[in-house]
Design a binder for these strands. Structure first.
Length: 826
RNA sequence: GCCCGGGUGGCGGAAUAGGCAGACGCACGGGACUUAAAAUCCCGCGACCUUUACCGGUCGUGCCGGUUCGAUUCCGGCCUCGGGCACCA
């Protein structure tokens, strides 16, 4: 009778069984070690793509493996549900964003369930629901209370296509990260989170994360951009004003030949306002103001500047130096003013050469000289201080210390550290996001919404303007309110929060998703947090992961959480490619997960995606590769079914190794070797691809064993059961079914992860390699654990070796027991 | 420009402490089964040389060099692809 692998019925059957029996529900259980496994939650765009499948397949293997190893595993899933696409759909198709989002969530949830991922769906959350965003607002209020949320008028990145501002982090190559429109500069009053207060901890605590990829640590380190140096002020000649500058090279202060202000510098504004500068200066400042940050900060941008007519006094040598304004100095880093040392800074040199400014060498190294007159290349290497008065002769390092000492003693400045990180701009001029819980009152000014009034509900059923402008501005019911402080009429803030705010605390909410009073229970969070394993795309290496770290540290500081870092271990998975490029609608190379699941089943899809490449690397999709995985499952299906009748009632355990024949011994060895291999691969390295290979090898060994005329069914049963258990995290439905086929009553998911039998891994004979001068000349079988003398003897008596060394002199013999013998001969 | 990763058969990828390069899979070739095809099962599959055949030999992990009895693995210098940052003083 034909017995086909009917994946469709099998998958439905077991998904239903798991659901009806609450298989993946978890609760706090102090008697078990906990394991919090989390995959980055998706934006409900409408359909699962292969990247999602990869992410969740990896996560499910980890969750199921840990669970079988005896951990109490929290494995939740939710929806990062606020964001622009919902709003665009509303504008284009007149569907309310909430409805569009809910529909998509329903579709994607069904697709996820079809994959058979072991989520505790009772903990599902969506960031766009009031019971969730209530606490996103709570986070805002807490930050506000702690002076970490503030409003300021700032030059911001404006996306003309999305009609909203963007955080610096969301500007990619000068364009909007979402729509790629060229970002413009706009002056607006906006809300910021003061993430810069945490810059030092965000960079230092990266050391607490040995379980993160080096790459991500580096990216964050660079992004935060710590620079050590000092700040000091220079007096302006014939004036009471001073200008403060920041430098990382205090050792070069004697080489300062001019200084530069950013065009936005307050002093420049003042000069222009007071008309104390030439028209030429005003024109220049105005011109630069209209230049976008992108054009301005490009390294290719030409350096432009203008002389103000003013001079500063270098406090170290009392020299008068001209003050310039130039486009290459940025207002929002350091003090917005620099001391220029053209001899030792490429940018300053380029500027000095263009505008004919003097160049003084103050560091002498191997390739330059103190007397150099026609400097064409900035010297930035090591050396000693010259032309620097009393500091001459000091090394760069000693010089920096000495100058900072001098600055501090003379009270003109101090040693400081600057970070490249800027505060996080969280205002968005959009509708579909968490409303900022702030009220503007004519009497009281900015008033935070009291906690008891949360959530500030986002009004639904409203009209969208095709302009893309936030519709909230026109919802009178929403805007008009009363001031919580004085009770007079007041207006609500109409900006919403960046969706990254929603996703920077969701992992804590999963620990107690139904708490109505607080974002999460302290007790539950203390049990589950931090996330033991976080898995997602490397594209979140900076933004999401840094914001989440920031908020976790903040929650720690206000005594809400006991951990300072949210994610102990991080796995960044590679992309899914087709024909060498990322799958995308525009390239027309998308393979839909549904199609694959319909054709081969979820288990095949999962298996292929885990087998085809190691998780952190990009994976090339191959239709034929999927076929291969499907073939493998069918092979196992036939094998197990063929044996089912014969092994079902066997209860005896395999006999001692020395009582088995050679082929049976090999099978038993392979079984236990595979247990060890798969366990190591999953536990230590997340090498799912090699774990699958090992399981395939065990299946191949079982196939070879079928030729054995007197099979030992106790060993066969052990091999088959082990194979199925090892394969369960990868292909759970398939393994459940076969587990039942061979007569087991209790779900395979509930089986303990097997331990290998050390005695089965002892071989009495091993094949070792015999080399001459490092080249393999023969292989011989020897009893395992043969000692060096025995091996030497065997090698020297070997006929091939005798033949090949007869004209040579044996200089040395290297022996690695159970592995190889290398004869060095001349 | 700076900082990270990669580079191994026709392809995806193995080699976990310096010790048999190419596990496992895909593709391909041959055979068995079949009226035939599909499916399945078995065998082969880095290049070159030698040989009727077996056997055997040389080269081979981006390139050049080094350390070592022995290097995909360690060291130095390059080439190249991918990613991140980029006028941050």
């Amino acid at each position: 009778m034909e017995n086909k692998y009917d994946f469709e019925n099998i998958e439905n059957k077991w998904q239903k069984y798991w659901k009806e029996n609450d298989f993946y529900k978890v609760k706090v259980d102090e008697s078990k070690p906990k394991y919090y496994n989390l995959e980055m939650f998706p934006y409900p765009s409408g359909n699962l793509h292969m990247g999602h499948v990869r992410n969740y397949a990896i996560g499910d293997v980890v969750a199921r493996f840990k669970s079988m190893c005896g951990y109490n595993v929290l494995h939740p899933m939710g929806w990062d549900a606020f964001g622009l696409p919902a709003e665009n759909a509303a504008i284009q198709h007149s569907i309310p964003p909430a409805q569009w989002t809910d529909t998509n969530i329903a579709i994607m949830k069904e697709q996820l369930q079809k994959l058979g991922v072991s989520y505790d769906w009772d903990r599902e959350l969506a960031t766009c629901k009031p019971d969730y965003y209530k606490f996103t607002q709570w986070m805002f209020l807490k930050l506000y209370e702690n002076n970490l949320a503030y409003k300021k008028d700032a030059g911001v990145n404006w996306c003309p296509s999305c009609h909203t501002v963007l955080a610096n982090e969301q500007v990619v190559d000068g364009g909007c990260e979402r729509c790629e429109a060229k970002v413009e500069k706009k002056q607006l009053e906006q809300w910021f989170f003061k993430i810069t207060d945490y810059a030092e901890r965000l960079i230092d605590d990266l050391d607490l994360l040995p379980g993160w990829p080096e790459k991500v640590i580096t990216m964050q380190t660079n992004w935060i951009g710590r620079s050590e140096g000092c700040q000091f002020s220079m007096a302006i000649a014939d004036s009471d004003e001073t200008i403060s500058v920041f430098t990382t090279r205090p050792d070069t202060v004697f080489g300062v030949t001019y200084m530069v202000l950013a065009p936005e510098h307050p002093l420049v504004k003042k000069m222009c306002a007071e008309n104390t500068v030439k028209q030429e200066v005003k024109d220049f400042v105005e011109e630069i103001e209209f230049t976008s940050d992108v054009d301005r900060t490009s390294t290719e941008a030409e350096k432009l500047g203008v002389f103000t007519g003013l001079y500063a006094i270098n406090p170290f040598n009392e020299k008068k130096i001209p003050i310039w304004i130039a486009n290459y100095v940025l207002i929002d880093y350091g003090t917005g003013a620099i001391m220029a040392v053209p001899a030792h800074d490429e940018r300053d040199l380029e500027f000095a050469l263009k505008y004919n400014l003097p160049i003084t060498t103050v560091i002498q190294g191997d390739t330059n000289s103190a007397a150099d007159e026609d400097v064409q290349e900035a010297y930035i290497g090591d050396g000693i201080m010259v032309n620097s008065g009393e500091f001459d002769g000091l090394s760069i390092e000693a010089g920096q210390k000495a100058i900072i000492d001098f600055i501090e003693k003379n009270s003109i400045g101090e040693g400081t550290i600057n970070y490249r990180l800027r505060d996080w701009l969280i205002s968005r001029q959009r509708y579909w996001g968490t409303p900022i819980p702030i009220i503007h009152c004519e009497n009281c000014g900015v008033v935070p919404v009291p906690y008891k009034d949360l959530p500030v509900l986002l009004p639904e059923n409203i009209a969208f303007k095709p302009s893309g402008e936030s519709p909230l501005k026109y919802v009178d019911d929403f805007i008009n309110t009363t001031c919580p402080t004085c009770g007079k009429p007041a207006q609500r803030e109409t900006d919403t929060m960046d969706t990254f705010v929603c996703s920077s605390w969701y992992f804590t909410r999963f620990t107690s998703p139904n708490n109505a009073d607080l974002p999460f229970d302290r007790e539950a969070a203390d049990y589950w947090m931090p996330v033991d394993q976080y898995i997602g795309g490397v594209e979140h290496a900076i933004l999401h992961l840094m914001y989440a770290r920031f908020l976790t540290k903040f929650l720690y500081d206000i005594d809400m959480l006991s951990c300072q870092e949210p994610f102990s271990n991080l796995l960044t998975q590679g992309m899914v490619l087709k024909d060498g490029v990322k799958m995308s609608k525009s390239k027309g190379n998308v393979v839909s997960p549904e199609e694959i699941i319909d054709k081969y089943g979820a288990d095949t899809a999962r298996l292929f995606i885990l087998f085809a490449a190691p998780p952190e690397r990009d994976l090339g999709w191959s239709d034929q590769g999927v076929e291969g995985s499907y073939r493998f499952l069918n092979r196992v299906w036939r094998l197990v079914n063929d044996y089912a009748e014969n092994i079902r009632d066997i209860t005896a355990k395999p006999a001692e190794m020395d009582k088995l024949d050679e082929a049976t011994k090999d099978l038993r060895y392979k079984t236990h070797f595979t247990i060890k291999k798969v366990t190591d691969d999953l536990e230590e390295r997340f090498n799912f691809n090699t774990a699958v290979s090992a399981i395939m090898e065990l299946s191949n060994t079982l196939y070879s064993y079928r030729n054995n005329p007197n099979p030992d069914l106790t060993v066969v049963k052990e091999a088959i059961e082990s194979l199925l258990i090892l394969l369960t995290p990868f292909c759970p439905h398939f393994c459940e079914e076969l587990w039942e086929v061979i007569g087991n009553k209790e779900s395979i998911t509930l089986q303990a992860w097997p331990e290998y039998d050390q005695t089965a891994l002892i071989k009495d004979e091993v094949e070792i390699v015999v080399q001459i001068n490092g080249k393999v000349r023969d292989r011989v079988k020897v009893p395992s654990n043969s000692n060096k003398d025995e091996l030497r003897q065997i090698a020297l008596e070997n006929s091939r070796i005798v033949e090949l060394t007869k004209d040579k002199k044996i200089v040395k013999i290297i022996i690695i027991p159970d592995k190889l013998i290398n004869i060095v001969a001349k």
